[in-house]
Structure formats: C-alpha cells, structure tokens
Design a protein around this nucleic acid. Sequence first.
DNA 1: CACCTGATGTCATTCACTGTCATCACGTAA
DNA 2: TTACGTGATGACAGTGAATGACATCAGGTG
Lengths: 188, 188
Amino acid sequence: MGRWEPNARGRLANAALELYSERGFEQTTVAEIAKRAGLTERTFFRHYADKREVLFAGSGELEEAFVKAVADVPKSAAPIDAVAVGLDTLAEFFVDRRDFARRRQAVIMATAELQERELIKLASMSAALADTLRRRGVAEPAASLTAEAGVAVFKVGFERWIGAAEEREMSRFMRESLDELRTALTGN
Amino acid sequence: MGRWEPNARGRLANAALELYSERGFEQTTVAEIAKRAGLTERTFFRHYADKREVLFAGSGELEEAFVKAVADVPKSAAPIDAVAVGLDTLAEFFVDRRDFARRRQAVIMATAELQERELIKLASMSAALADTLRRRGVAEPAASLTAEAGVAVFKVGFERWIGAAEEREMSRFMRESLDELRTALTGN
DNA sequence: CACCTGATGTCATTCACTGTCATCACGTAA
DNA sequence: TTACGTGATGACAGTGAATGACATCAGGTG
C-alpha cells in the first residue's frame, strides 16, 4: 500500500466533473475540488495547469492518434481521404463513452471559459493535422484549409453524435458530415 | 470641454495594445494599462469585461456586417456563394488597416489566452452565420458546415493577407482560399 | 542505518475581477 | 439662479485563481 491514495490525477478529474455538473464551473472553487479528492488546492495545480485544463486531460492522446492515423495512410490517397481515415480513428476513441462525453459536453457548453479551452484544443488539432499534411507533400494553403475542414467535420459530427436520440456509431456521423460539406461547397 | 478627457474606451484600448506589444500580455497588469490611459483599474473593468476583451472591441460590428451581407444576398444564390459575398464585405473592414491588424495579431499570437479569445469570437461568427443560413432555408448539418467552412476560409485568408510581403486586397486572398478549399475537398 | 527522491502539505504573495459607496461636473427644471 | 438628478469616475475592501518557497515524510537504495 502506497503512502498516498492512488490515482490523484483521476480523483481530481472526477471530482471536478462532478462539481462542475452539480453547481456549475464558476460556482466551484479549486479548493472544493481538491477537498473532494482528498487533496489540497496546491496539489491540484501540480496536476493541472489551471481550473479548466482538468476537463481536457485526454486531448493530447486524441490529437496524437488523429495525426498518426493520417500519417500512416498511403501517400497515394488524396489528402481529404487521409483526413477521413483520421476521423474514423477518432471515432474509435469514443466507443462506449457517449454518456461520459455528454456529461462533459454539457458542462463545457454551459461556460464560455470552457468553450474557449475546447476551441484551442481543436485549433491545436488543426495545426498538427496541417503539419502532417505538409509532410505528405500538400502545399499551403491547401494543407491548412484541408485541416480546418477536417476539424470542422469533427466538430459538427461530434455534436450530432452527442445529440442523436438513438445510439449510432460516431464514424457514420463523420462520414455523413464530410459528404454534406463536399456538396455544400460544390453547390449540388 | 467635458469633465473628463474624451474617449476613455479608446485610450484604454490604445494603452493596452501598446503595453501588450512592449512587455507582453502576461507581464502587463490592468493597473498599468489604466494608469497609461489616465484612469483607474476599476474604470478599465467598467469598459471591458476582462483583460483580454480590450483587444476585441470591434468584433461585434464585424460579425454584424458579415451576417447582414449574407442575409442580403438574393436567395437564389447558393449558400456558399452568399458566404463568399460576406467574406468580401469583411475584407472592406480591413482596407488601410493592415499595419494595425499586424500589430494586433502579433500580440494575439504570442499568448495562448488571447488566441482562445480570438477563437471564441470566430466561433461566434460561425454560429451567427449558420443561423443566417438556416433562415435562408438551409437545413442542418449543411448550414453549420457551410458556416464553419466560411470561417475557415476567413482564418486562412486573413493569415495569408497579414503575412504577404506585398500589399494585396484582402478579398483576393479570400477568393483564392475558397477556391483552394473547394479543390481540396473534391480531390482535383 | 543514513540518505535520497518524489508526491504532498503549508504559507505567503500577486493579480484579475467584483461589489459598494463616495465624488463631482454637467444638464435641467422650477 | 438654485436645487436636484445623472452618469462617469475614484476609493476601498474582498474573493479566488495561480505561483513560489520551504517543510514533511514514506519508500527505495547503498
């Protein structure tokens, strides 16, 4: 048995999501989160850079997986098709996590500060994706625009997956959204 | 002659941009901004909701102009073409303001907090744009996706306009970016 | 057994932001 | 002219996020 209870990071993340859900983000103090996790405020800030970041622990892995999937697609494929493969990989991350994703998203949508943080995570994904496309030989501005389009498809597809009444695979929403974007831009 | 020096808001905005440029955003306190503008910290917060917002004073008018331009396009036009008209209207806002836009953008790019604020302003534009498209009879998810695409084109076009060596009309960058996005998605 | 290490606690401090009340030139109406 | 209301500002106290410095202490290591 260790000196401290295990998984301090996870306990902090759980406590934060609970409290943000119960009272709202602004009505929750970091001291309260730490207390519920059996820790002190100072320790919270050793695990998470700020009060928002505690909700975005997994975003690094998500970005890595996305980028890696795109990089691994044979170069013969068109850039947007490589991005589509990346979107399918992202979808796998959320299998059996729709309830969790819903709770988390409800908290984020309720507070502008958290939406800002979410947006910069998506912007980071877009930048990493553009970088990967450039490595595949895609020139600017096509690389940045394709990356932005891919993230836009993810955003809209994710929202629709979260909001859907019945459970459907996320990848279906992604493919549907990408097709819709294509037709919207080509005017058919 | 009024009791106070005129244009307190503008003085605060100028002082903030200067100080953020000189020392950086984080190294500048609100008290310093207020002092340079000949006011107190408390008065700063009467004019701007927070330390970031002082750099985004014009964003409301920008969004309004964008949305109005799109709404005024005859309904016979395709959604993406209406958005293109909106982008041209946006471009007019920046005529003769490239130097100012550059200084401001340099400050924003230097600090994550400010990028977050910029991203939520763009997200607000996207949401307003999607709403306008829905009023034009565009169904979801096409409305949201077209709006996201329009804002992506604005982002990329703006960056390229800012970064261009020679001065070219912003609207040219917008059209170029939109065309590139189209070809990237259709795979030609 | 002495020592080192890593995770945590304690304490002090800065600064963004808010609530409340005071101030005071200006306009307006009696 | 005078009394009064109004709006922009100042003064001050308070909360809470975030950071730095130092102390503590169980477990591993030589």
